[in-house]
Design a protein around this nucleic acid. Structure first.
Length: 258
DNA sequence: CGATCTGTTAGTAG
DNA sequence: ACTACTAACAGATC
């Protein structure tokens, strides 16, 4: 489910299927998705071609000539392509019909996903106060986000206002690989350690994208393969423990991570 | 049946 | 004004 790597893979998949295709028809299948949109918002996108896509953190933007369609996938949102007259996939909330015979469906069983139309991506990002995308994060970002902070390193990694795109499994993965206990207060990490941590998160994101975010295809060294309570840690010395941090289940090995 | 889940945000308290 | 924590959103899965 959608953290930065998953959203990036969806973005690439969308480009592969419908970049420069014309949008012919919009079907809103779950009206809750569009309650806060302007009246007749469809007119701003229909009969235009999808000319550009962007992703910042977990947010996806599709440009239809006049305006951007913004999608956020929540916990269970996804994009599925089917032939235009095929059955809709289960949990479809929105369907976009393109003139190349493909229908792009936004599926979302838990319905935490969101959609909006925006004129400028930059103003959307500043309203949200979203941090820089993880893949573009700098050493300076790493220094600033952890320094003088009392909250846990895990909580800081999850803050989209610091760096955008890290979710629960990616945060656990980076902390495990850098041997940092997830509850470590951000401010007690050295500048160097903070930079290594953010750099690790970036590398993980790239590796996950390269594997098309199919977890089974992730390299063996990925912590995600062991990320379950009471599993043996690959270090051979400890068991994986589970705690709640920042309201999220957090898995780690207290032997490796201190 | 009850607990859990890879996200965000309104509300609350400090 | 900012920081940090919680509940809520909803349904499949174990």
């Amino acid at each position: 489910m959608p953290e930065l790597p998953e959203v990036e893979v969806m973005r690439r998949n969308i480009e592969a299927h419908v970049l420069h295709a014309g949008l012919r028809k919009v079907d809103v299948l779950d009206p809750r998705l569009t309650t806060s949109l302007p009246q007749n918002w469809e007119n701003a996108v229909v009969n235009n071609e999808l000319s550009e896509t962007r992703r910042v953190g977990k947010y996806l933007f599709l440009f239809f000539g006049k305006t951007w369609l913004h999608l956020h996938f929540g916990m269970t949102g996804s994009i599925v392509f089917v032939p235009t007259n095929d059955h809709l996939p289960k949990y479809s909330r929105l369907a976009l019909d393109f003139d190349n015979g493909l229908r792009m469906c936004f599926t979302d069983p838990r319905t935490f996903g969101k959609m909006d139309v925006v004129n400028r991506v930059e103003s959307f990002l500043s309203t949200k106060k979203l941090g820089r995308d993880l893949l573009d994060a700098t050493e300076d970002d790493a220094k600033k986000m952890f320094v003088n902070r009392k909250i846990s390193a895990k909580a800081i990694l999850l803050k989209q206002k610091e760096v955008a795109g890290i979710g629960n499994w990616l945060a656990d993965e980076a902390l495990f690989r850098q041997k940092i206990h997830p509850a470590t207060p951000g401010g007690s990490l050295s500048e160097r350690k903070a930079q290594h941590l953010l750099d690790e998160a970036k590398r993980i994101a790239v590796e996950a994208i390269d594997a098309d975010t199919h977890y089974g295809d992730f390299p063996d060294h990925f912590f995600v393969h062991h990320r379950k309570e009471n599993n043996d840690c690959p270090c051979g010395m400890g068991k994986i423990e589970k705690v709640q941090l920042a309201g999220r289940s957090t898995y780690f090995c207290s032997t490796c991570q201190s």
